[in-house]
Design a protein around this nucleic acid. Structure first.
Lengths: 258, 258
DNA sequence: GAGTGGTCTAGACCACAGA
DNA sequence: CTGTGGTCTAGACCACTCG
């Protein structure tokens, strides 16, 4: 057998996890301090700490050095429906400033987005997809750090080829109703086909800092590619999110078999 | 700042990770034994071991108790294109017994599938999707454990409503060319619309054993739903895979905006 | 300065694989 | 039986937050 005996630290982790998932320990509430548990259980510091580390890697708890350990603020999954979030109706929903805002409000939380816009040379893989030159500031980058209440839940970085984005609304802070997709369409580059590639990986150090997650918490990276009817990629967006916070759905049709 | 100082164990983990990713350490090759590193570096056993644990959680290495520690056999990502894998042409590709076989052969590895077929009461969430009664053996379950060479890379469990699957080819070991989707179509239940829900989570204990992964390695669960033109769900398939081994892609069309 | 989480140590002991 | 990885301990010390 693979695991005959469950180690102490895992038993503790499992029982705490159960208490958290059952709601017995509320989001944001403080967990017993490690040294208190050490005293009450008679176990060694590292034994208790191992349990806490495992739970932190799973995203159930957060440890704040010098302060204490707390149940995570977000225990539910944020639902991202890729198929509908790019449809016209969803993008123009009243009162919504985009798909992300809807996704967060669906959870009863407050969305917030901080944007940074710049002309940059994109990462290699983006340059390749957009078919831009390898040197110079060839694209418009729109980098958004996105919050649910006060938690960073996503970093989304869009790139648009400079030859069609420089000097347009895509370089403005607010892209207006329907967002960048509508502006691109007005410029004659309507996106008619989308591709997304999902990958689970460990965060870069910088990503871990921005997302406020430990270095060993996995993230999901979505590479989103929007293409025109002619097949040209006019937008590439990289979404990086903590793996435990989101779920993703896709719907599509298949031709009749036989 | 969030991380002023990088701990020793993480430095070791990072440098080993770099060596593995660069190909300097080949898949399947043995890593230095922990106690050897302890001696050569002068560090404590747990310090070195922490680095190994982190790498194992990321899927870069595997530790075998009593034997040693080795670089993982599969370092590349297996690509799963959800959109094309259910298309007619892909399913009938010459020499291929299905989308999974193609996915694995694309990596130059040998696919293998071990199936178990049974009539069962499905998990709650599946029962709900298929709209079957909550009691009795209401569905046909096809559980497949799937290998690339000798590594388990996926557990796929399909459920079909009994009223249309009992006594049909769906209860046979080999479902023939085009697989279960083609058989369902012949029975008058052609699937024309697919939905998939992706989620990253920790494995159940049983899943960890089957997949031969440690309990703290994340898995991706895909809930695949196939529907007929009338909107009835006629197949639900749960795919569970180690999160580090796969990447997923989806393509779809959007209506012309504006 | 007091209190909290995080790292590191040296060493004992356990669990497992293989000769 | 020996050698490997895994757990656990007791305690020192570091890093950070807050009053």
């Amino acid at each position: 057998m693979a695991e005959a005996k469950t180690p102490k630290w895992r038993q503790l982790a499992n029982s705490l996890a159960a208490e958290i998932k059952s709601g017995e320990r509320a989001p944001g509430s403080q967990l017993p301090q490690i040294r208190d548990l050490v005293e009450s259980t008679g176990w060694a510091y590292d034994t208790v700490r191992n349990a806490y580390r495992a739970l932190e890697d799973e995203g159930l708890i957060v440890s704040r050095k010098g302060q204490g350990t707390y149940v995570a603020d977000i225990l539910t999954k944020i639902h991202r429906d890729a198929t509908s979030r790019y449809s016209k109706v969803a993008r123009e929903a009243a009162g919504s400033r985009g798909a992300f805002d809807t996704e967060i409000r669906n959870l009863g939380m407050a969305p917030k987005t901080v944007s940074k816009i710049d002309r940059v040379q994109p990462p290699e893989k983006v340059a390749k997809l957009l078919n831009v030159t390898r040197r110079g500031l060839s694209t418009v980058m729109r980098e958004r750090t996105m919050y649910a209440d006060n938690t960073v839940v996503q970093i989304a970085t869009s790139y648009f080829p400079g030859d069609l984005a420089f000097g347009t609304a895509l370089e403005q802070q607010d892209t207006g109703p329907g967002g960048s997709i509508s502006r691109l369409a007005e410029l004659g580059h309507a996106q008619t086909s989308m591709t997304e590639l999902l990958e689970v990986r460990m965060p870069e150090k910088a990503e871990a800092v921005i997302l406020s997650i430990p270095a060993d918490r996995a993230v999901v990276e979505i590479t989103h590619i929007g293409r025109t009817a002619e097949g040209r990629a006019v937008e590439v967006c990289l979404h990086v999110v903590p793996a435990n916070l989101w779920e993703f759905s896709y719907s599509w049709s298949v031709e009749q078999p036989n």
